[in-house]
Design a protein around this nucleic acid. Structure first.
Lengths: 97, 97
DNA sequence: ATTGACTTGTCACTAATTGTCAAATGTAGT
DNA sequence: ACTACATTTGACAATTAGTGACAAGTCAAT
């Protein structure tokens, strides 16, 4: 099945909980416009905000962090024909550390 | 075997060809100090410079590009306990595009 | 002690990111 | 259509990260 990106994930979770953007924004102490942009992928959340979101949305912080980090990698590689090789190589290098 | 990072790779190739930093710097039209930092991983090369380096060092551009991109991912994930999960998730997402 | 290769620290400049605000758009309900 | 509220958009300011140059430094060989 198709994997969700970070914005889609937090939007789905927010709606499931019946929260408004304004409420999430208040909890993170940012402007409503910004969380709107984050949900639509126009801006990236900061790492600290991912933790706050996980708590607010009552999901596992690590799961959400995986999606958030994964967004960065997809950004980096989506235009790269070599993406698969890069991931393989990175995996090796991260292992033998 | 242990995987080389970008800096180690270009240093090894440069030394194999008997080139001086100053010569590589001239070819890339940058300061010698900068290429020194790139080899030691203190700075990152730009994408354009990777191409020039591959040509100068007579290696496959794509191979070098893989190492260079991989550096970025290692940077992003090396302090992350979740690295493996992130790579797996990213792989999936890059596939079903 | 001079030379040549490389390294290090600092600074200036630029580019990218993050955030806010105000205005615009969308969506129900009356 | 009018209101009220939620969300989005665009423009801009503020912050932060990246890029590169320069000058001074170390190190090894002679």
């Amino acid at each position: 099945m198709k994997q969700e990106n970070f914005g889609e994930t937090i939007r789905r979770l927010r709606e499931k909980k019946g929260l408004l953007l304004r409420q999430v924004a208040a909890a993170l102490e940012i402007d409503t416009a910004l969380i709107s942009k984050i949900e639509r992928g126009e801006r990236k959340a900061q790492k600290e905000q991912v933790g706050k979101l996980a708590e607010l949305l009552e999901v596992n912080t690590e799961e959400l962090m995986v999606t958030w980090l994964s967004d960065k990698i997809v950004d980096l590689l989506e235009e790269e024909p070599l993406a698969h090789k890069v991931l393989k190589n990175s995996g090796k290098r991260l292992k033998d550390k």
